[in-house]
């Protein structure tokens, strides 16, 4: 089984015995409640699925694991810069075809009454700009795309 996390893709092959699953010396007992056994100690876990993402709480940690369907392509939206939240574009600092360096401010947007800088994650060239100053943008909208 394969998942995507903020660290990248990760695979797990757990051994199933009835409603229990074992991996690297840890056992999880599934049912109405989730009990995790690590080194002979039991920890209660809570998990819920939102869309394709499993949210897991165990021992004071909250983690997210996105299920990757077998055979799904691994194309990540690299180079695309998307709006972290719904908001409004305040400033556009670059124009199409312009070369930018990693860390350059490309746009400034307002979301939840705070200003956020949209910063280039790598060196490259601005291929296209999808919004203008004053535009409202939904969450996840690709604001502009960077090429090599």
């Amino acid at each position: 089984m394969e998942f995507k996390t903020s660290e990248g893709r990760i695979e797990i092959d757990a051994k199933r015995t009835g409603s229990a699953f074992t991996h690297e010396g840890m056992t999880i007992h599934t049912g109405d409640e989730l009990w995790l056994e690590i080194d002979g100690r039991k920890h209660k876990a809570v998990a819920t699925k939102v869309g394709d993402v499993w949210w897991v709480h165990v021992n004071g940690h909250t983690m997210q694991f996105e299920v990757i369907e077998p055979g799904a392509s691994s194309s990540d939206d690299e180079g695309g810069l998307s709006a972290p939240m719904p908001g409004k574009i305040l400033e556009v600092h670059v124009s199409e075809g312009q070369s930018v360096k990693s860390g350059d401010v490309l746009m400034v947007m307002e979301a939840m009454k705070m200003e956020h800088k949209i910063v280039a994650s790598s060196d490259g060239k601005v291929e296209s700009i999808h919004f203008r100053e004053g535009d409202q943008v939904p969450q996840g909208a690709e604001l502009l795309s960077l090429g090599e």
Partner: peptide, 26 residues
Amino acid sequence: NPNISEQMSNAGLLVAAACESTNHGR
């Protein structure tokens, strides 16, 4: 960034995998 041991993130992964296999909570 959260300070999390490898064991804990493995534990989380195991929980996710077990839940996905058993349709937990559905």
